[in-house]
Amino acid sequence: MKGVLPIVTIVAAILALWYAAAVGMNAAWTRDQAVRAGVELSLAEVVADTLHQERPKLPAPHQVAAELWDTTVAKKITSKRSLVYHAGITLSATLLGFAIGTAAGIALAIGIVHNRAMDMSVMPWAIASQTIPILAIAPMIIVVLNSVGVQGLLPKAFISAYLSFFPVVVGMVKGLRSPDAMQLDLLKTYNASSVQTLWKLRWPSSMPYLFASLKVGMAASLVGAIVGELPTGAVRGLGARLLAGSYYGQTVQIWSALIGAAVLAAALVGLIGLAQRITLRRMGMAR
């Protein structure tokens, strides 16, 4: 297990830095309180207090860990205070949005590769769509969809899709165009139709590009879903936890939701990586 030592070292360094930052950032409050109460605190007392405040500027790692434990393992999944429950809400929007975004991205890429007019026109729009801050457009999407009677999962999924289709389009256009001239000529000598060329050559050739795009798209989907939860009144989901936490100064809750989101993203991207390894190995394209 040679790989373990470097990882442990990095994690330890991050934790040390985190604790140091927590002490530094929370100390002002501790001293302030001490002055008001008229007590003199020793350095050890100050440090001890900075790591156990209820609403610290920066919660210490063990506080976040305790909160995570409390809201995942100790609570029932159906509880509104369970992080697993909220992550599940976000996950369902993420996955639905990811599916819509991926399908739309692949469809657009196929259109771009096969149709000259689309080739010239779609990409600038796709790029323009990504330059609009999602935080600005997300409430519009929610409001517009709500006014036509679409509520709940779908508006959030739509924002997810809005973010995740882009990397798929870019990657798949490149992937579908990756077969070289010789490969395309070969199919021309068979008088293959463009549909046959797509299925037998372009699609399989694009797999490495697809998986790379999916990883980026998945992370973007999760961000989209969380952002989509903010303007809905922050009722449910990781985004709601973040927003509620910031309303009430619950920094520990914010940090645990952030870490929950990060773990979720890592798990999802890891799953895609696994699918990628299996698929490409089966296709003889593993590198």
Binding site: D185, T189, R282, M283, G284
Partner: peptide
């Protein structure tokens, strides 16, 4: 006709 190119160009999959 059948056409053979300089590279075999077999599909790895």
């Amino acid at each position: 006709y059948g056409y053979v190119f300089q590279a075999a160009g077999l599909y790895p999959w």
